Computed example of a mutant assay.
Amino acid sequence: MRVGIVTPVVAQPPPGHAAWERNAGIGEIARIVETADRLGYHHVTCSEHVAVPAAAAEQRGGVYWDPLATFGYLAARTARIRLATQVLVLGYHHPLEIAKRYGTLDTVSGGRLTLGLGVGSLQEEFDLLDAPFSGRGARADDALAALQASLSRRTPEYHGTHYDFSGFVVEPHAVQEHVPIWIGGRTARSLRRALNADGWVPFGLSLDDLAKMLADADVPAGFDVVLAPSRPLDPAADPDATAAALRRLRDAGATVAGVRLVSGSPDHYREQLAALRELDCGLTFGDVR
């Protein structure tokens, strides 16, 4: 099971962030991600919200760094860690907009993009962006198919139910021959959608429910299941509990763990990254650089 980090600072939903994150900036983020890169972690994340309704921010948080700008900076500060959008909302963008903007990110990062995508649930945000909320699932399915036909192609062509295009040049485009696509969600439909992509990033489900859903599905070889522990891990102070939590993810079917870490400062977070790497619990890391 590979391990990535749910990047601190860039999203601050209550109560899942540390106090120091509220006043941290890109320098602190970059030093943490540089450490994760050096230690061989699999990926870092950044999610997308354009504008969160004030009432919803009380539950979801109001801080969401833009993933394209954030990852563009982090790409220049790292060498091999993957940059995973977790997640972009499909309904907010035309598929070729994603193909161009994130294809450019794939180019400048040397082919390190993992494209996490979701359907979205905040109707107020859809309305703000003049994006259709009703029927968004079917539209997302068509957008996913359009993206799969367009990423890594200079002259993409697609003819679907909601999107139809040909005769356009997208340059630059993704340099990976195949950009991995993960689908976020918590429903059986999201899993079915993910099975047409490369991985599933569920949330808000018990490990027992996740294991049952995966057991009932025809999961292909090489399919990523990206699971997160229910609370931040403390590998330095409580290595046994940390190892047990990660084993539970693996036993539920995870191939990738996306972790949050207990930390009192950016330096403490970096120490926790090193402590987690030293645990003997079947984790897979790249070489230390």
Score class of each variant (00 low, 15 high):
Y73H: 13
L246H: 05
W20P: 02
R31V: 10
E271H: 11
A79C: 00
G40F: 10
S265K: 08
E177H: 14
L105V: 06
A36Y: 14
F285Q: 01
A140K: 07
D280C: 04
T284P: 02
D218P: 02
M213I: 12
S265Y: 08
F168C: 03
G286L: 07
A254Y: 00
A245N: 00
R31Y: 00
G16K: 11
S206W: 04
A69Q: 09
F203I: 11
R139Q: 02
G118E: 09
T78D: 06
C46N: 01
T242L: 01
C281F: 03
P156Y: 04
F203N: 15
A79I: 00
A76R: 06
E97F: 11
A140Y: 09
V226F: 08
P8I: 05
L279C: 07
G222D: 09
S166K: 07
A211G: 14
E21A: 04
V226D: 10
L117N: 02
D234N: 09
V44T: 15
A138D: 08
L88M: 14
D208I: 10
G25L: 10
H49Q: 05
Y158Q: 04
M213E: 15
G204I: 11
A145Q: 12
A138P: 03
R250L: 02
L83I: 13
G61H: 07
V179D: 11
K100F: 09
D37C: 01
D208E: 15
A99Y: 00
